[in-house]
Design a protein around this nucleic acid. Sequence first.
DNA 1: TTTACATGCCAC
DNA 2: AAACGTGGCATGTAAA
Length: 561
Amino acid sequence: MRIAVVPDGEGGGRLRELDGGAPVGPARHVDDLAAEVGRIEGEAGEPPRWIWAATEDVYPELVRAGVRVRRCHDVELTEALLLGHAARHGEPRSLGAAWARAHDLAVPDDPVRRSGEGTTAQPTLFEADRSTLPPGTDRLDALIEVHRGQRERVAESPDPARFSLLVAVESAGALAAVEMSHDGLPWRPDVHDRILTEILGPRPPAGQRPRVLAELAARIGEVVGHEVNPDSPAQVLRAMAWVGHPVESTRSWVLERIDHPVVPLLLRYKELARLHSANGWSWLETWVEERRDPEHPDGPRTGRFRPDYVVGGVVSGRWATRGGGALQIPKAVRGAVRADPGRLLIRADAGQLEPRVLAAVSGDRALAEAAAEEDLYARLAAHVGDDRERAKIGMLSAMYGQTSGDAAPLLATMRRLYPRALGYVDAAARTGEGGGIVRSWLGRTSPAPSDWTATIARADGERRRRAHGRFTRNFVVQATAAEWALVLLASLRQESPSMPEGCGIVFFVHDEVVLHVPEELAEETVRAIHRAEALTRTTLFGDTPVRFPLDISVTDCYAKT
DNA sequence: TTTACATGCCAC
DNA sequence: AAACGTGGCATGTAAA
């Protein structure tokens, strides 16, 4: 059963049941939308699929009201997938835009969503109309009409089964994203502060350098012979020339090659300055919401970091985030991620995901045989007769399109041993070099290069052609890996035991998920993760011999994994 | 003063 | 080992 739903902006909303794409029965209005959705979700039998304009606009309010849904169809995300498939990347994707296109009307721009929207604690009462429909349009009718059109477009795609799976898991990902932002990653501000103080010295007044950074800057000045601002690449360039070691840039890997006493000081400064500016005290104040656990009022201060995920925000289908840098939490501060009292963190990450994906999609028997192992690279090394590290470099080179360095002979060996796998990425690269588009396993489509004829006619045309070839080469693997992760998230939502408020999947980054669970549910949750992995593999690739082993750890602290 | 771009490093 | 794929973001610098 599908149910189209449109919030009214006052806590209520209108609903209408659908059979396939067509409405059955009348539209009806309810005063308390969350209560009604919760009631229907509680009914026995096949769960409904909720049809709505945008999960990130509709679902946060439901979650805040304590309601979770199992399935949805996100019209906006689906529209983006369909537009991409039709080589129309970047066109507006909102419900209103899709409706306008269907009616040959002027297509409105997409609304801009600011950082933090949808994750803030303040109820927004189903945020006013974000669908950009013209005034006077019946939003429910428009939603139903656009949804029906999308179903038809999916059915007309080259592989409707795969594309509709893509639509379903993209939508499930949107549900998971809202839930993760709501529950938040448990983050101890006191521990974070202790980590910073140990490394940088005590918190300085705003705008000043922490003690350790100030000392390093002073010593750099002494060694060079005059004051240098290590934060200024231009000053560092001049300083290096002044001490007799001119460099083309101040990148750390360039400086590392220079034998001069100022270099270790500069490298140390860069490392610590990065920590201070990106994840220091001001980050902590901005992004970690302090809270007291009502059940443990005398316990340690706890907090929550709530990433604001942008589902499908990367062309490859990976997620992006708005604000807070959730996808780049440095290892140095992961010790601040601590389970609440009585709870545990379960981290599951997919090892060597991309070469395994390549083995599965290409159908290369030799690579699949290696990918049936726990350590794919070790088996690869045995195949190519080299050490594990170099075998790994060779594989990554094939997927990233690296040609320089000593990867070339290794690549030749791999072309011979894994002809279908290498052929798969090589073909994608050739398509890209010709300005073409490629698709992931489920049909996510790479954006076509704009003004290709003009681009390749330019002086650096050849360089750009090859760069686009590297992009499409990587796209077919990275985008399919992102699909694997989406299916895993969807499977995990389905398989996980029900959790108390604040628990569940709390963090996701490319090939890794973190769950925050009551101690007594940890074992059951680990079993659910294994079921989800198996389900993911068969859903995507059927009876492939390729395995996707998950490294699962159960701890009280993210840094211990 | 604001804006746009360049630089550099973090993550996967 | 070298600088190759996807991003976010802070900071410095120059242009507007």
